[in-house]
């Protein structure tokens, strides 16, 4: 009964949109996370592991330094 209901719900959802909302949310997460790491991170991500030292090291900033300049993102 429950499975029948779920199946019906899926069909309705697919009929309404055709595009999986889960896929859209997953891709949106990839977009935000990827853009932040490559373009804007100043140590924030690795500070979750290494604490304040990550802000001094700025590993992703240094690694993506050339991309940031080449793609027009603010850098220094």
């Amino acid at each position: 009964m429950v499975l029948d209901f779920m199946s019906e719900s899926r069909q309705i959802s697919a009929h309404k949109t055709g595009i999986s909302k889960l896929a859209l949310v997953a891709l949106a997460a990839v977009f935000v996370a990827g853009l932040f790491v490559v373009a804007f991170d100043q140590g924030h991500v690795l500070s979750l592991v290494y604490g304040e030292q990550a802000f001094a090291d700025q590993f992703f900033h240094e690694l993506t330094h050339d991309v940031r300049h080449a793609a027009g993102f603010p850098c220094h």
């Binding site: 595009i19 859209l24 891709l27 996370a33 990827g34 490559v38 690694l63 991309v67």
Partner: peptide, 28 residues
């Protein structure tokens, strides 16, 4: 040299990121 290797890695990650936005908008 290390930063230049980051250029390739970074553009691939950036490509996946911007490509994801592009895919979302294309699908919609």
């Amino acid at each position: 040299s290390w930063q230049k290797s980051g250029m390739i890695l970074g553009t691939v990650v950036l490509g996946i990121s911007i490509g994801s936005l592009f895919g979302i908008i294309f699908a919609l």
